[in-house]
Simulated assay, not measured.
Amino acid sequence: MFKQRVLTALVLAPVMIVGIFFLPLKPFAFFIAAIATLGAWEWANIAGYQRTWSRVVYALVVFVCLYISARFLRVFPEWLIVYLALGTLWWAIAFALVQSYPSGTRLWQSRPIRALLGLCVLVPMWVGFMHLKEQPHSSLLIFYVMLIVWGADTGAYFSGKRWGNTKLAPEVSPGKSWAGFWGGFATTLLIALLFGLYIDNWVEPLTLENSWKLLAITVVTMVISVLGDLVESMMKRYRGIKDSSSLLPGHGGVLDRIDSMAAAVPVFAFCMVVLDWGLSP
């Protein structure tokens, strides 16, 4: 298993680095759309559509929704905030669903509802990535969101392993603990501090107001990234499966790798727009 994880990571890492950080805008849009479409193929199984043809149809539906969104936002860019707001609203609803599991499953147990929830995850993720890609210093911003997610995961792993007695959501993900959450929170605050110092010294002077905005955006994004992982765990637990697929040997499926990012990216982008925060060209 460990050998498979390493080999898969060695193949995926350069693909992801080139795709996210070096592709121009249009190829980048197709690259993220391809990831979302693969995620949709897996989500169809999570939603209860097990036949190959139904999973392919669902993946095509998601891709078409992404294409329509791209064309629509190109003509009406002012609707970006609506997409991001709806995506953020979904994660607020998801918090309530995780809290109410398993008693609240009656609200989303039907396959069409679960399929619709997949759109709520994947479409805002793509829109959020595109918004970040269009910003000055886009690679730096995308990398920072990744750091938030990785920091939350890494801090949670080590602190949870050491002090994780009280479970965060035992019915959904028994491995997650409150100690892990606070460890991830502390790690993310450290990352925000270091990132702020980097911005202030190497990119542009960081005012006190913008420092507080950056901190607020970071904290909200970190919390939502944890929720992204919990939501996929909840869906898989209800479905009775361990991984979203076996597309990535040793790692599970695409959704297993991007669940936290799918939540973090649109919320990070939404907070940027609402708080009017960004980096100058």
Rank of each mutant, 00 (worst) to 15 (best):
G155T: 13
G175Q: 12
F158N: 10
K176E: 14
T188L: 03
L168K: 01
W163I: 08
L168D: 08
G155L: 14
F181K: 03
F158G: 11
V172Q: 11
K167Y: 10
A186T: 14
A192R: 00
L190W: 05
E171A: 15
W182C: 03
T166W: 12
Y144K: 10
Y157W: 13
G164H: 07
L190A: 13
F185L: 12
S159A: 15
K167I: 09
G160M: 08
K161L: 13
A156Y: 09
G164I: 10
G184T: 06
A152L: 05
G164N: 07
Y157K: 11
T187G: 00
L190V: 15
Y157T: 09
F185A: 10
G183A: 10
G180K: 04
A152R: 06
L147T: 08
T166A: 15
A156T: 10
A192K: 01
K176F: 06
T166V: 15
T187W: 01
I191C: 01
F181I: 07
W163T: 00
L190M: 13
G151P: 01
W182V: 05
L189E: 04
L189K: 04
L168I: 06
D153Q: 02
G180H: 01
A192N: 14
G183C: 06
I148F: 02
F158Y: 15
T166L: 15
V172I: 11
K167C: 10
I191D: 01
A152G: 15
F158D: 05
V149E: 02
T188A: 12
K167R: 15
I191F: 09
W178I: 13
V149P: 05
A179Q: 11
W178S: 06
F185T: 09
T154A: 14
P174R: 11
W163G: 14
L190Q: 03
F181D: 02
P170E: 15
P174F: 11
W163E: 04
G184K: 02
W150G: 09
I148P: 00
F143Y: 04
A186M: 12
A192L: 08
G175N: 13
K176W: 05
G180M: 07
G183W: 01
P170V: 00
L193K: 02
I148T: 08
P174D: 14
L189M: 11
F185K: 00
F185R: 00
A156P: 05
